[in-house]
Design a protein around this nucleic acid. Structure first.
Length: 906
DNA sequence: TTAGGGTTAG
């Protein structure tokens, strides 16, 4: 009733009117100390209700007005009324007024004392409450309970338990159900299992086990103490579990049996409230069940429950986990429409969503709209900056946050360390390390893990290792981080050592080891890890498949690759775009460009990597025109090319001899897409000109380069000189390669071949001397061929293969047939050729003797193919009528009827 | 009783 009056603009008049009838009638015949009659009781009751309502609505002016009315009615002498006055003032936040009233009461009863304790506790004045408690002449169970719940509300959980223990030890007071509920809440907060079990024992001793509120608190306590099984055993015995217990138990089920069981329990609930819905939505979101989270949110709204900021926080988090911006934006609009303001919880969720979806400015805008920022909203925005690659913003926000000041927590530090990783700059990372020590923060495991990553990414593996060694507790991520740290700083053996000795592994640890091997070119070791992982029953994920298919691609083990693709499909990753992209590369590198094309065409929404993979595939196979077509289609689809796309399209132009197109694309790269060309792009252009015979133009371009040309650029020029027999320019290229201290033996070998071809034997021995002086040795060449589901590897002059004698015989036989054509001589004027038993020849011979006549022979080689072997392959394709495919370090050569797809330029 | 941000693999 009062509440209704309060909406009026003249509340005091109304209160006066409310009380006036009684006042007029009573003021005459109520003596101050007379016996209260019925009317007196009615008025007292009216005041009681008014004061209670006033405390609820927390109106300070109304509180004072009521106090005045009390004085004028003379009711301010009743202890009952005065107790309520204390309560009203405390409720309105006027604790000093409450305290004044308390001190003036002569005849304090136990209610008076208890009310004052509660008042002080509610205002956070714990010491005052303690003083009142100590001074009170007589305590009842409410006094003790008020102290307990007061301590609990003020976050003093241990104190709550202490009060309970003192109460139990005394003989003059027995805990009631409220005391037990309260102490159980404290135990839940402390998460101390032993304490929980002792309290459980006492509840049994005091015979409270049948009490609904005690039992439901106990269910919650055991769940919070991480003993959901005990909680369940209590829950199932409850006759009428209340909403609180159901809600707690849903959470317990999610811990015990997972999200699906929690959902089943939720379905069994006789009735649900908003908390139940929030609980299940939060569980589904945390378990990564995104679609179900969204379904339940819709269902909740459909059933007429009003979502609050907790609901939105969970749903936003789920949307973020799959980068679902459409849903997020829909939620954002809905929140603004229905809830006016955005609190810091929802705001942080929105910031996180927008930033993770690459909309940093939008995230910043939401941040600005939030009134009260806390460490989470700051950290979300800083994390967003890191995620979007704005490291400078991240550091500046971190600085602003400290200036506010908002205190950083572990999350903040780990986030900022992420920015240091991206910069690969040791300075800020070391400063943050020092800062965390200076402010005396206990290093959490994730912060230590982030430090390890930071040091490793900055190539300081010693410091990374130090952090790891100093950790008191390590988790699976700490170990996995060390594996990655070692493998990314060139020490794959050490990585394997840590992998072997880590106490437990998950799919990420396996993936890290797998990727470590694959990235170092140890493809077979990587594939062994994959096999071992499958044998041990570890469930692979899409990253496992991306890496292992990548290993097959590099090793060009197409059959195993196809098998792994089937397994990827079996595990439900067949349509994952990253997996599909890796399949494109695998097929391309295995020379099955048609299968690569099919895979590419099957991707409905291609991303940049899909386009790049397909173009690189075409480029490698020498399908220059297709590269250019694909590039044009990519532009047409609205996809913006990056520097990698341009490497492919330029190399495509080079292969197809499209000089003017290549020039146009190079111009587009700089002017339209504003990419600063790298040495790789220049090397493509040099190759483009060189291949077309424009060696001088190529050299001019090198002279115009704004940066120092690298070995790839000079190598491209050297390659052109070799084909166009320009030994003067070749020497310039070599001179530069030598100055660059190029350790790659390929260029030296090319030059030596050039001199050999022109009969300049003196220079051949000069080149050999330079190589010897610089300690450059020819990379050991090897070739491999897939027969009977395994790769057979051959090295030059191989003697290791079990059927090596048969292989040599077969090779001699094919060379004899080739010599019969009159287009090939086995020996030059100086005896046997160096290249007589090159590994690709051995692989060819093995292929011819092992594979059925209709099957094309695919050979892989780790170096570039030499002239002699190239000629042998061409002629072999004619005399055997077989299609031969050789993938060398640079590209594919498809030999058919005596011709090669590279048109003799590689 | 229920909520938001951080660390490992491609």
């Amino acid at each position: 009733m009062i509440t209704a009056f309060l909406t009026s603009c003249r509340p005091f008049c109304i209160i006066r009117r409310l009380l006036s009838t009684h006042h007029k009638n009573l003021s005459r015949n109520i003596p101050p100390y007379g016996n209260p009659d019925r009317s007196y009781m009615e008025l007292s009751q009216k005041f009681y209700e008014s004061m209670k309502t006033c405390a609820n609505v927390q109106s300070r002016p109304l509180a004072r007005a009521l106090h005045c009315q009390l004085i004028t009615t003379g009711l301010d002498v009743s202890t009952f009324v005065l107790n309520n006055l204390i309560n009203m003032y405390s409720g309105c936040g006027l604790i000093d007024d409450a305290s004044l009233v308390f001190n003036e009461i002569e005849l304090k009863n136990v209610f008076t004392w208890n009310t004052m304790i509660e008042g002080f506790m509610c205002s956070g004045r714990v010491l005052d409450a303690e003083k009142v408690f100590d001074e009170m002449p007589q305590r009842d169970v409410v006094s003790w309970n008020s102290m307990m719940s007061g301590y609990f509300r003020n976050g003093l959980l241990e104190k709550t338990v202490e009060v309970f223990v003192s109460m139990v030890r005394r003989f003059d007071c027995v805990p009631d159900a409220y005391s037990f509920s309260c102490v159980m809440k404290a135990c839940a907060g402390i998460k101390n299992v032993n304490l929980a079990m002792q309290v459980h024992g006492l509840a049994k001793k005091f015979e409270f086990l049948g009490d609904d509120s005690v039992e439901s608190s106990m269910v919650d306590m055991y769940i919070k103490c991480d003993m959901p099984d005990v909680a369940e055993s209590i829950f199932v015995k409850m006759k009428n579990p209340n909403m609180f217990s159901w809600n707690s138990m849903i959470y317990g089920y999610s811990k015990l049996y997972g999200a699906q069981s929690a959902l089943k329990l939720f379905d069994q609930m006789p009735k649900r409230d908003v908390v139940s819905w929030n609980m299940i939505i939060s569980i589904l979101s945390k378990h990564g069940n995104v679609m179900k989270t969204l379904d339940m949110f819709i269902e909740m709204c459909r059933q007429g429950f009003r979502p609050n900021s907790m609901t939105y926080a969970s749903v936003l988090s789920a949307s973020t986990s799959i980068y679902e911006l459409t849903w997020g934006a829909h939620l954002h609009a809905r929140i603004i429409r229905l809830h006016q303001n955005i609190d810091v919880y929802v705001g942080s969720g929105l910031i996180d969503l927008y930033a993770k979806c690459g909309r940093f400015e939008k995230a910043r805008k939401v941040f600005k709209e939030i009134k009260d920022h806390n460490v989470v909203s700051w950290t979300s925005l800083i994390g967003g900056a890191v995620h979007c690659g704005n490291e400078a913003d991240a550091f500046s926000l971190f600085k602003q946050m400290k200036e506010v000041p908002v205190t950083s927590d572990q999350f903040t530090l780990a986030t900022v360390l992420g920015a240091c990783c991206a910069l690969k700059d040791l300075n800020p990372g070391t400063q943050i390390h020092a800062y965390s020590i200076r402010i005396g923060m206990d290093p959490s495991i994730p912060v230590a893990n982030a430090l390890i990553t930071m040091y490793a990414k900055c190539s300081d593996i010693r410091s990374a290792n130090n952090v790891f060694e100093l950790m008191l507790h390590r988790d699976i991520i700490s170990w996995t981080t060390m594996i990655t740290s070692f493998s990314q700083n060139g020490n794959i053996e050490k990585a394997r050592e840590y992998f072997d000795k880590m106490p437990e592994r998950n799919v990420v640890s396996w993936n890290s080891m797998l990727a470590g091997y694959v990235n170092h070119g140890f493809w077979e070791d990587g594939l062994k890890i994959y096999v071992l992982m499958r044998q041990q029953g570890v469930k692979p994920d899409c990253i496992t498949f991306v890496s292992s298919i990548g290993a097959c691609a590099n090793a060009a083990i197409q059959k195993l690759g196809t098998q792994i693709v089937c397994q990827a499909e079996k595990f439900g990753f067949g349509s994952d775009i990253s997996v599909k992209n890796s399949i494109i590369t695998m097929y391309s590198k295995c020379g099955r460009i048609n299968d690569a094309e099919k895979t590419f065409d099957s991707i409905a929404t291609k991303n940049l990597i899909s386009w790049n993979a397909m173009m690189a595939g075409y480029a490698q196979s020498g399908h220059g025109n297709q590269v250019v077509d694909t590039f044009e289609k990519m532009i047409g689809s609205g996809m913006i090319p990056d520097h990698i796309s341009y490497v492919s399209v330029l190399s495509g132009c080079s292969h197809a001899g499209l000089v003017s197109e290549g020039q146009r694309y190079f111009d587009m790269l700089i002017n339209e897409h504003e990419i600063i060309p790298t040495c790789e792009h220049y090397a493509c252009m040099v190759d483009l000109y060189g291949r077309a015979g424009l060696v001088d133009k190529a050299k001019d371009l090198i002279d115009e380069m704004p940066m120092e040309p690298n070995a790839a650029v000079w190598g491209a020029l050297l390659g052109a000189c070799r084909i166009h027999r320009n030994s003067t320019m070749a020497e310039t290229a070599l001179k530069n390669l030598v100055e660059l201290d190029a350790e790659d033996s390929g260029s030296y070998v090319l030059l030596a071949n050039l001199y050999t071809d022109s009969g300049n034997l003196e220079n051949v021995s000069n080149v050999r001397r330079i190589m010897k002086d610089k300690g450059i040795r020819k990379n050991p060449g090897c070739s491999w061929i897939e027969v009977d589901n395994r790769a057979h590897v051959f090295t030059v002059d191989d003697t290791n293969h079990p059927r090596i004698n048969d292989v040599y015989n077969a090779l001699r036989e094919i060379i004899r047939k080739i010599e019969e054509t009159g287009m090939y001589v086995k020996e030059d004027g100086f005896g046997n050729k160096d290249s007589a038993y090159h590994s690709e020849k051995l692989a060819l011979a093995f292929g011819l003797m092992s594979l059925p006549a209709w099957m094309p022979i695919h050979i892989m080689k780790n170096l570039r193919i030499c002239d002699d072997c190239h000629l042998v392959m061409k002629l072999a394709s004619r005399v055997t009528s077989r299609e031969l495919v050789v993938r060398d370090a640079n590209r594919f050569h498809r030999f058919k009827d005596g011709c090669c797809s590279c048109r003799d330029y590689w």
